[in-house]
Amino acid sequence: MPLEISPAEFDRLVGQALDSLPDEIAARVDNVVVLVEPTAPPEDPDLLGVYDGVALTERAANHAGDLPDRILLFRDNLLEMCDTPEELADEVRITVVHEVAHHFGIDDARLDDLGYA
């Protein structure tokens, strides 16, 4: 049975995860919006989160004027995999760090090496 918390409480956990980023990392996360969606897209129903944008390492020198990059977190999948509020807080933090890392151009293989895959 999935863990149940209110959308507002889930959003609070996301905010805490973002606030836990080291200052030098957080300062470089620019023009990125973090959104919570109830469910993952049908083409990839098991996703916990996804980075939708152009990584800093891939941007052209004249990269400007584009819509913000997005980090999407999928609440139902995160809730389903956790049994306790503490597990959920940890998994939300791990997922946020994972997706922020993609913003910096870190791929899944390296994230796996670092324990964030």
Rank of each mutant, 00 (worst) to 15 (best):
M1W: 03
M1H: 07
P2D: 14
P2H: 13
L3D: 01
E4L: 12
I5D: 11
I5A: 13
I5E: 13
I5H: 14
S6E: 07
A8P: 03
F10N: 05
R12Y: 15
L13F: 12
V14Y: 09
Q16H: 06
A17S: 08
D19M: 13
S20A: 15
E24Y: 13
A26I: 14
A27M: 09
R28S: 05
R28W: 03
D30V: 12
D30I: 06
N31L: 01
N31D: 11
V32N: 07
V34A: 03
V34M: 07
L35W: 00
E37V: 12
E37C: 06
E37H: 13
P38A: 15
T39N: 12
P41C: 11
D44H: 06
P45K: 11
Y51Q: 06
V54H: 00
A55Y: 11
L56W: 10
L56P: 09
T57S: 12
T57Q: 03
E58A: 11
E58L: 09
H63G: 01
H63S: 05
H63N: 06
G65K: 02
G65T: 01
D66F: 01
L67I: 00
D69F: 02
D69E: 05
R70A: 06
I71F: 02
L72Q: 08
L72M: 11
L73K: 04
F74T: 01
N77P: 01
N77V: 12
N77H: 09
N77Y: 09
N77E: 04
L78N: 03
L79I: 10
L79A: 05
E80F: 00
E80W: 00
M81A: 14
C82F: 13
C82P: 03
D83P: 03
T84E: 08
P85I: 14
E87N: 06
E87V: 02
L88H: 10
D90T: 06
E91V: 11
V92K: 00
V92D: 00
R93K: 09
R93G: 04
I94A: 06
V96L: 10
V96Q: 07
H98E: 11
H98G: 08
V100T: 01
A101I: 06
H102M: 11
H103D: 13
F104R: 08
F104L: 09
F104I: 12
D107T: 13
D108Q: 06
A109Y: 15
R110C: 04
L111C: 08
D113H: 10
L114Q: 03
G115Y: 07
Y116M: 11
Y116C: 07
